[in-house]
Structures are given as C-alpha cells and as structure tokens.
C-alpha cells in the first residue's frame, strides 16, 4: 500500500490482500454462509476494502453541526426484519410470525428494537456518517428512542448530524444524532451514538494494515 503526500491511497490488491489475511482465514466466506436476504447477498462485507476506506470520513475532518440526508434508502422487507432477529439471535415469534404478532396486539410483523442497526449499516457506506464503519471504531454508548414501529413496506431515510467531538485520555470521541424517517416523513427512530475513532486517515490506514492505532 502506498500513501502519497496528499493522503491518497493506492493498494495493489492482487499483490497484497491485507497480507493475505482474508485468504488465510476465509472469514468473509464463513460469514457469507449466513447471507439469505437480497440485501445480504448484495452488501459488501469487507470493511477493509481500500476503495471504501478512502471514502470514509475521519475524526479530524468531522464538522460539528454538519447535517446530511443519506442518499441510500432502505426498503423494509419481512426477510430483512427476520434476518436481523435471527442474527441477534432472538427466536421470539413476534419477529417471524405476523399472525402471532397481530394476536399480541401489534399491527403486523414486529421489527426487533435494534433493527435500526441493520438500516444504518446498509445506508451509511461513505462520507458523512461512515464513522460507524471505520476499522478500529469503538462504541462506548448510545441512546435510542423509538417513535413509531417500523413496518414491512416502509421506505426509510436517515438523517445525520455531527453533534460533538472531544479528546479524553488520549482517545478521540465523537457523538452524532441519527434520525430515521419513513416515506411519509414520520419519525421512526432517533438515536444519539458515541464513538471512539482513529484520529486521522493515516491512523485508519494503520488499522487497515492490522496495526494498533487508537492512541496515535
């Protein structure tokens, strides 16, 4: 891998596939065994892929107060909701059986309370908000508010705002506000997420190489 003076990354993937870790471990292939839904089959599971890393937003570039609406939408299918519950894993029939859910007083198949995680990672792939994908990111806490149930057929949009960032005991923190709306503009979820991130692109690149880089 080569990083020029402007911070641009060039990696020859044929020659150095992360020192062939992927090939040695086959971990991507292991995870692919669990891909059942249309979205799982199309989603890239390699967060170390250089062409994606170069599009991440890094801690030192985050602007507090900057807002964005994520261009990727999430059309909710029953298989998505069930795949999340299965991955948790939680076998509560409310998450798999629409008739049972209705019998229990819900108006349809119930989305697991943390289903918004799948939505977030699906839509946040680069630029503003890609912090959650950063190799080396840690999640020391979050607050989630549920305003309205997510339903099969919803088309979800996410809005983001960088809320705060600070340095404490040599670690680089940031907090953001995340809101999920449906196709009618109804607020479904509001969340305040906190992350500890590598500070710069160079630190992230050290992580990509497999070096420890959080206290850079």
């Amino acid at each position: 891998m080569v990083v020029d003076q402007d911070g641009n990354i060039a990696i020859d993937f044929v020659k150095c596939r992360y020192n062939d870790w992927e090939v040695k471990m086959g971990y991507l292939e292991e995870m692919a065994k669990y891909h059942k839904t249309q979205k799982q089959k199309q989603f890239g599971s390699d967060f170390l892929k250089a062409e994606e890393v170069k599009d991440y937003e890094f801690w030192d570039k985050i602007e507090i107060g900057e807002e964005s609406e994520v261009p990727v939408k999430f059309e909710v299918k029953a298989e998505d909701m069930m795949a999340y519950a299965e991955g948790v894993p939680d076998d509560n029939p409310l998450f798999y059986d629409e008739a049972y859910a209705k019998k229990c007083g819900h108006d349809g198949l119930v989305a697991h309370p943390l289903f918004g995680t799948q939505v977030a990672f699906f839509v946040l792939r680069k630029g503003h908000g890609s912090w959650i994908r950063t190799p080396g990111a840690r999640n020391p806490g979050q607050i989630i508010e549920w305003h309205d149930p997510i339903r099969v057929g919803d088309i979800l949009t996410m809005k983001l705002r960088g809320y705060d960032k600070w340095i404490k005991r040599g670690k680089y923190y940031m907090r953001y506000l995340r809101e999920v709306y449906d196709q009618n503009g109804k607020l479904k979820i509001r969340g305040y997420g906190t992350l500890i991130l590598p500070k710069t692109k160079e630190d992230v690149l050290r992580f990509v190489r497999g070096e420890h880089a959080l206290e850079a």
Partner: peptide, 20 residues
C-alpha cells in the same frame, strides 16, 4: 458474532476478522 454481523451488516473487522 459472524451471524450477528450478517444480520446487522456490521462487518467491522474488530468483530469479524480474528487474524486482523
């Protein structure tokens, strides 16, 4: 953990890549 990664799309290597 791998199953959870597939369900959540959180494939961060800190969870999924033992060698890394």
């Amino acid at each position: 953990i791998w199953k959870h990664a597939a369900g959540s799309f959180d494939y961060n290597p800190v969870h999924t890549n033992p060698e890394w």
